[in-house]
Simulated scan of single mutants.
Amino acid sequence: MSEPQKESVLRDHLAQNLDLIESGLQLLKVEYAVKNPDGADGSIDILARDTSGDFVVIEFEAIESSVATGVAGA
C-alpha cells in the first residue's frame, strides 16, 4: 500500500473514531478545502469541534521510513 493510500485509510478510520483523540469531538468535515487569495489553496485532513465549541484541526504527514528510523534511533 502506498503512503497516500495509508494516509487516507488512517484519516478515514480516525475521522470515524474521534473519541480515540478526545471524548466528545464532533466531526465537521474530512478534506475541508481552504482557499487563499494568494493562491496557496489546500485542505485540512480532519476538521472537528470539541465540547467547548473550539475547532480542532487534524493533519497527517507522511514521512519516509528511513527518516522515521533515524529519528526514532536518535
Rank of each mutant, 00 (worst) to 15 (best):
A72H: 11
V9F: 11
D12R: 13
E22L: 13
V56H: 02
D50S: 00
K29Y: 05
I44G: 09
A74R: 11
S65D: 14
D12Q: 13
E7G: 06
V67C: 08
D41W: 03
D54M: 08
E64P: 06
A62D: 11
K35C: 03
G39S: 02
A48R: 04
I63F: 09
A62C: 14
K29E: 02
K6Q: 10
A40N: 13
A48V: 00
M1V: 13
V34I: 14
D38G: 07
K35G: 04
H13E: 09
T51P: 02
V30I: 12
A40Y: 12
L25C: 01
E59N: 01
G73Y: 03
R49M: 08
H13G: 05
V9N: 08
D12K: 09
F55A: 06
V57C: 02
E64M: 08
R11V: 05
D19T: 14
R49Y: 10
Q26R: 03
D19W: 07
G24R: 03
G39Y: 08
H13F: 15
D19G: 12
V67F: 13
A62E: 11
I63K: 15
V56S: 06
T69Y: 09
V9Q: 11
V9C: 08
L14F: 09
L20G: 00
E31I: 00
I21F: 07
G70D: 07
D45A: 01
V34E: 05
D12Y: 05
L47P: 00
A72W: 12
E64W: 14
T69H: 09
A62S: 14
E22H: 01
I46L: 10
N36S: 13
E64L: 14
S43T: 04
S23E: 14
L14G: 02
V56T: 06
E61W: 04
I63Q: 14
L25W: 10
P4N: 03
G39C: 05
D19A: 14
S65C: 02
G53I: 05
E59K: 03
L28P: 11
A40S: 12
I58A: 05
D41H: 15
V30D: 05
I44E: 07
S52K: 08
T69M: 08
M1K: 11
S52H: 09
E64H: 15
Q16W: 03
A62F: 12
A40P: 07
